[in-house]
Write a protein that binds this DNA or RNA. Sequence first.
RNA 1: GUGGGCGUAGCUCAAUGGUCAGAGCACUGGACUGUGGCUCCAGGUGUUGGGGGUUCGAGUCCCCUCGUCCACCCCA
Length: 422
Amino acid sequence: MKFSAPKGMQDILPPDIYIWQNVEEVARELFHKYGFQEIRVPIVESTDIFIRSIGETTDIVEKEMYTFTDKGGRSITLRPEGTAPVVRCYVEHNLYNLPSPQKFFYTGAMFRYERPQKGRFRQFYQIGAEAFGVSQPSLDAEIIVMLKNLLEKIGIAGLNFELNSIGCDKCRPDYKNALLKFFKSKLAIYCPDCQRRYRTNPLRILDCKVPGCVELRKGAPYVKDYLCNDCREHFNELIFSLKELKIPYTLNPNLVRGLDYYTRTTFEVTSEHLGAQKAVAAGGRYDRLVEEFGGPPTPAMGFAIGMERLATLLKEKSEQKIPSPKVFIATLGRDAEMEGFKIAESIRSSGCWIEPNYGGASLKSQMRKADRIGAEFVLIIGDNELKAGKVQWKNLKNSQQGEVEIKDIASIIQKLSDYIPK
RNA sequence: GUGGGCGUAGCUCAAUGGUCAGAGCACUGGACUGUGGCUCCAGGUGUUGGGGGUUCGAGUCCCCUCGUCCACCCCA
């Protein structure tokens, strides 16, 4: 009986891990330039936090949360997303007393109990960014630019930025009613899912992929026509900014986010190379959430990137090279092995990856091993070398070989490696 | 939660219901007593994912279950 990772969860190992590390490194560096600082919040929260923010009737809350009762009788949930915990943190520590805006980013695992498919897992990783305290659309624009720069920097092209505004508490109800009125007459001919959506979240009908429903919704009310003055102005200014900044985007009036807390700006970054789950990143404004969590009215905006989806794109883009040690030390006999360990330590202090030989094996098999793990150099230490205080070195790329005093090894290796044709 | 495809060696895959389930790659050792790559030789663990059934006989057919992949719902 062999064990395997839990369903929908996966191990990330070399060489894939280097893709992940690179993305995180680039993100950290870039986000700092925009004033976003890293925070770490717990991986679990009180269940209420997610119910209150994401929405009681959303799929995430209704059927996708990993919820359990701890030994103190508290209901605890593995976070299904990152925004709610960050908002809780912001309010708990009264960060609204600090100068606005406060900007944060985080990386980490999220959990949703779903059927796995391409680009969807039960444990998945996000890089998220959240900014608090600015209602101006210039913040929206800045965040979108930052995201675009990140994606460009890590080398992903051909992405589509989709943009929409879903209004605020004032104007969304009007739009919702207009939609309900529009759908009502032909409700019976819509697909069963849409009939359910009619009751739970009518905006979602705009998103349905069933051809019949796509046809039926032609002529449906347009969000843009129902935005209140403030929301319309906000949206127009954002669009203006994006044009000025030369950020290509697509307006998608059918872009509806699944989480209840969104207001005004919503956006999604999609790729055609991902299968059905094609959103690489998504986000939007949530101007009411801080207040909802007991803080003062504080506008906010953020996004999250799906790491697995990003990694998928990066993987199909280029071949990965597996890192290999610079030096392998082949030794014959116990004394030589000990000397080899000492030499290894001194070379490591100069900063390169070195692999020693562990235990007895023929020189031949050690040489073969050095070759297979991709080492550039082999140092050979046997009885003869021990007596002479020297080691044999061999460059495996060009087969040059020579002898060197033990004390000179580190410097020799640095010099020789420069000759190596890459 | 719903629907479909697929589970055979570490990996990629063969095997009409019929002998003891094979091949390539990879791995380890040797040919080469202290020198890698090329070549040759040798070496193997499979509870054929698991359980039950049909049959003289099941990797193959049927049922259940688990896993995986893809899609729906929904979402990063």
